[in-house]
Amino acid sequence: MRISQIVRIRTESPTVKTFMLTDRLCAKAKPGQFLMLWIPGVDEIPLSVLDAGDNLVSVSVKAVGDATRHLHALEAGATVGVRGPFGNCFTESRGRVLLVGGGTGTAPLLFLAKQLAAKTERLSFVEGAKTKDELLFVHELGGICNEKSLITTTEDGTAGLQCLVTQPLASLLDKEKFDMIYTCGPEIMVKKIFEMTEKRKLPIEASLERLMRCGIGLCGSCMIGKYRVCRDGPVFNAAQLREVQEELGISKLGFDGSRIPL
């Protein structure tokens, strides 16, 4: 456990804040990797890295439970603990790539998009959220993709297309040829996207989420099939996703180790 300071907090949406922390090791994190953040006296939670460099690391956090609400209540200058970076990362594909993010799942994909922008022939991004206020990083993404290659969707139609993020995908995947599809977001969404890429025999890398305790591949809390999401993942390719289809978007292990529906 390394002690770190929150140097800056940015409000991204009514429910999401970005925290910039000092940490020499996590500053070297690659897109897809995560860190364990300790809120002293409260809890320790896994968070995807949004950005890293210059001895700093950023994470975007949605206030959903006790730990994240405590984190949202902290101010710049507060002390937290950090372990990591943990897990594997997205592979760098060339050619034409498509990134699909749902909710805070957009965070690691923004990090990836920044790295891929200069290396790929074409980068397209589809982002979905419940409502306009929760569409994250639209401005940053707009700067990376050109206007035509950024599609946004909202469930209530307050911005972009009124539909689920998966809806514009079918025609996009049929119309254009992609060398790689990257995705992160709610697992039901990931599962649907995986089904679409499988049908079209397209390569995919998806970042998954599970209950994390040790973060280093020992305790088994984050297993999906034979894989440890914390150590073998969190990024899985098509062949691996095929192996865990019985659990993908269906069930995970709960705190007591029993299988619970997602």
Partner: peptide, 28 residues
């Protein structure tokens, strides 16, 4: 009976080892 175990941090690195307090999480 099922036990949820303790909340995090449940594992912390020590010099040349790990300290864990999972709290016997198990489904019963």
């Amino acid at each position: 009976a099922p036990r949820a175990g303790y909340s995090n941090p449940t594992v912390v690195q020590a010099e040349s080892g790990l300290i864990n307090a999972m709290g016997l999480p198990n489904p019963g």
